[in-house]
Design a protein around this nucleic acid. Structure first.
Length: 418
RNA sequence: GUGAGUGUAGCUCAGUUGGCAGAGCACCGGAUUGUGGCUCCGGUGGUCGAGGGUUCAAAUCCCUUCACUCACCCCA
């Protein structure tokens, strides 16, 4: 086949698409209960948006974005969004909400694009469901989002591990960062080549290096460097989670990849995913709105990796197939109108129904009904049509009886109870 | 960007020392005139990833290349 899909791009169908649907539907279902409304923003933005927010030196911006010149007079350079937060923040500021009505809660859902080397749980187009809250600096808000995530995992029945940390703010992080760099230079000879680069580039990343994990245990801990405000904030987050019974672990080596994060950072990990086990991640970004030209409004958010949740659901055997209650089979053209009407009524009664026309053989239609797991087959031939009845076949029990056209739904409801 | 592994039917895979391209599942048909599953019988389906080389002969050996997967990295 010549016209194959692009590397790292995925066709979701069958069981996989059911898992994706479940992962997203569970998140959507939660939003009204937390007072979070949907925001729909473009998938294409100016490249500068990501350079200024995500971070010029982050891998995401530096080498993973899909960018091209738009064919306008200015040859605007645009990028497919590699993440959701910058677009939402832009829309928030552009809509003037930072000044007129700063406290807002949004969710978004859609594809993101990063040109990475694909592997399990990592694709070049991937779907994120994210929540962003603006105008709330208090720790109760952090806790509320973590409770929401806990709720999400529980509603899916998905076992997951929550890790949280505080990475400080502009008051205290510089000192911590400095301490890390100092530590890194002292242990230069023991660190891996990647860590040598990290010291200048992103020293916080020294902490979660897989190769130097053992050594990193002796590195300075962000928690020891928190200023009084950050410490109090983090204590309140933890205490609130405890009071609600949300289970979590404090991981002082947990950091965030993107530049704009402050204070609370968190990740939720699931089993059965290989190396990319983080299904949800996020944190507070109090300086971001202002840095992007808006008012000084705090913010916090997270994103769910829907593919990763879907994979975890499949690994945990938590995806069930679609259920068709009945297949309505028209034997010959004359019965098609009647079968359509009956199917329509059954659906109105809340049943899942598939229509088929036995143009070849009734056998083939029944075989189809069996294959898709239908409990009932409603068979209408010329004889039944003339007499105003149908054959109602119970495929699970291999029994069959004649039912008047108007009583099919009731008969199925009754038989279904047995 | 780096490394390792794997490419044979739609899917999962076997294929011995180089010697006729195979199985199971799926699909289609029949046994059954308008009755599914289970069983039995039959059938469709192949550029052995691609290109080159060695050889009387290559899925098998050699070279090149492409793709996929996993991991590093990065991150959701």
């Amino acid at each position: 086949m010549e016209l194959t899909r692009l590397r790292g791009f995925v066709d979701w169908l069958g069981a996989g698409s059911l898992a994706m649907l479940k992962a997203e539907a569970a998140a959507r279902a939660l939003m009204p209960r937390y007072g979070v409304g949907e925001i729909r923003v473009p998938a294409l933005e100016r490249i500068q948006l990501y350079q200024r927010s995500t971070g010029e030196t982050s891998d995401v911006v530096e080498k993973q974005m899909y960018t091209f010149s738009d064919r306008d007079e200015a040859e605007t350079v645009v990028a497919l969004r590699p993440e959701g937060t910058p677009g939402v923040v832009r829309a928030y500021i552009e809509g003037g909400l930072d000044r007129s009505d700063p406290e807002q809660r949004f969710f978004y859902s859609g594809p993101m694009f990063r040109r990475e080397r694909p592997q399990k749980g990592r694709y070049r187009q991937f779907y994120q469901f994210g929540v962003e809250v603006f105008g709330r600096a208090d720790a109760a808000c952090d806790a509320e989002l973590l409770i929401m995530i806990d709720d999400y995992c529980k509603s899916l029945g998905l076992p997951a591990r929550m890790e949280i940390n505080s990475i400080g703010d502009p008051t205290c992080r510089p000192a911590f960062r400095e301490a890390l760099v100092k530590w890194g230079r002292e242990h230069w000879n023991e660190l891996c080549a990647d860590c040598h680069k990290r010291i200048d580039r992103n020293p916080l990343r020294l902490l979660d290096c897989k190769i130097d994990a053992k050594l990193a245990e002796s590195a300075p801990s962000s928690l020891d460097y928190l200023c009084p405000d950050c410490r109090a904030h983090f204590d309140t987050v933890r205490g609130t989670l405890d009071s609600v019974g949300v289970r979590f672990q404090v991981n002082p080596r947990l950091v965030r990849g993107l530049d704009y994060y402050t204070r609370t950072a968190f990740e939720i990990m699931a089993e059965g995913l290989g190396a990319q086990s983080t299904i949800v991640a996020g944190g507070r970004y109090d300086g971001l709105v202002e840095a992007m030209g808006g008012a000084a409004v705090p913010g916090i958010g997270f994103a769910i990796g829907l593919e990763r949740v879907a994979l975890a659901l499949e690994a945990a055997n938590l995806v069930n197939g679609t259920v068709i209650d009945a297949v309505v089979i028209a034997m010959g053209d004359a019965a098609i109108r009647q079968s359509a009407l009956i199917a329509h009524r059954l659906r109105a009664a809340g049943l899942a129904v598939e229509m088929t026309s036995a143009l070849r053989k009734l056998k083939a239609s029944l075989s189809r009904a069996n294959k898709i797991g239908a409990r009932f087959a409603v068979i209408i031939g010329e004889d039944e049509l003339a007499r105003g009845v149908v054959q109602l076949r119970d495929l699970a029990q291999s029994t069959q009886r004649e039912v008047a056209v108007g009583e099919v739904a009731a008969a199925i409801a009754e038989a279904g109870r047995n």
